[in-house]
């Protein structure tokens, strides 16, 4: 039943945007064909997966936070923090050469995760200590992280050989994620898959996962059960921010190859959408991110082939989100009705 409702929600998003297409003299069938072309073409599918990796990592991290009812919107900022940390490591290692090349990436992954975690713990501590609204603190920290990252790349970390253009020196080969042969997909996808399994295990099999859910269901029940709210929330945000930081690293080491101003295309916010659309289920998130990546690629196909505005993809995304959310109501409503 709930599957039928999900399907109906998605369909209604199609119908509403179909109406918009018709109004703007666009053949909706052709438009949808183009929007989903990436799932029929292996080159485009590979691109969809490339987009999906950072979205996946952010969404998986957020899942944990949302399960604890900590409504973080800080993925975007944490992506920037991850980008800052990996760039720092690259620049630092280029000067000091402490790490042998093959060891660099494994150690970098750990460092990026840890330092991004620190950034994520700040709003968690503020929430635990002062009950500040986490939506707003995480949102504000997004702007701060982005500005710091841009400051570094325009100022101290600017490539001295880059004709003054704002970007860091290029990352050396040992600081790049190797591509999976024959595709454009970089190997950070395995971090994403590993993270999905890890989040699943944490939530389903560990005591900590149980505590997360108790905290998420009811603050007072958690207190009654003797669960430390601040411990749970801090740990949850540490993991969440760490994964988002790895998303930033995946963008720089996997795709861009150097630090650039405003380097995240809003994946931190897309991750929020994906996390909710996939009902906070780690495995569905892996598929959902690829679906969304395909949608992003499809949006470009749509522009390229039909001359449609980039705004229409946003409208479709938003409609999809709203109808899916509305579907949640009908799932619950059904339960009440049976009783």
């Amino acid at each position: 039943m709930s599957f039928a409702i999900s399907l109906a929600s998605i369909l209604s998003a199609f119908i509403i945007s179909g109406i918009i297409f018709v109004f703007s003299n666009v053949d909706p069938i052709l438009a949808y064909y183009n929007l989903f072309r990436s799932f029929t073409n292996s080159a485009l599918l590979s691109e969809a997966v490339v987009r999906a990796i950072p979205i996946m990592l952010v969404a998986l991290g957020l899942t944990l936070a949302y399960k604890a009812n900590f409504i973080s919107v800080g993925g975007e900022g944490q992506i920037y923090v991850g980008g800052i940390v990996i760039t720092f490591l690259v620049l630092w290692n280029a000067q000091n050469r402490f790490l042998p090349d093959p060891l660099f990436m494994p150690i970098a992954i750990i460092f990026v995760f840890l330092f991004s975690s620190v950034w994520g713990i700040i709003p968690a501590l503020l929430k635990a200590r002062f009950e500040t609204n986490e939506v707003l603190t995480t949102l504000m920290m997004n702007y701060i992280a982005q500005i710091i990252s841009n400051y570094l790349v325009i100022g101290p970390w600017k490539d001295p050989k880059g004709y003054g253009f704002p970007h860091s020196p290029p990352f050396p080969e040992y600081a790049r994620f190797p591509l999976i042969p024959g595709t454009t997909i970089n190997s950070s996808i395995f971090i994403g898959i590993f993270a999905a399994i890890a989040i699943y295990v944490i939530l389903a099999k560990t005591k900590f996962g149980f505590e997360v859910k108790v905290v998420g269901d009811s603050y007072s029940a958690a207190k009654y059960a003797g669960i430390s709210y601040s411990k749970v929330v801090c740990l949850v945000m540490a993991i969440s921010a760490g994964l988002s930081g790895l998303a930033g690293m995946s963008l720089l080491s996997g795709v861009i190859g150097r630090l650039r101003p405003d380097f995240s295309p809003g994946y931190g916010y897309t991750g929020i959408i994906v996390a909710w659309l996939c009902n906070l289920n780690p495995f569905i998130i892996v598929l959902g991110s690829i679906f969304f990546g395909g949608l992003l690629v499809g949006g470009e196909v749509l522009q390229g082939s039909m001359g449609l505005s980039v705004g229409i993809t946003d409208v479709f995304q938003a409609l999809l989100l709203i109808t899916t959310l509305s579907g949640e109501f009908f799932k619950r409503y059904k339960l009440v009705w049976r009783r």
Binding site: I272, I273, W276, G311, I312, T313, D314, V315, A318, L321
Partner: peptide, 17 residues
């Protein structure tokens, strides 16, 4: 929260379009 984010995306997208 999610609905609000959707409204933001919708408003910006519609305006651009």
């Amino acid at each position: 929260t999610v609905s609000g984010l959707a409204i933001t995306i919708l408003g910006l997208g519609l305006s651009s379009f």
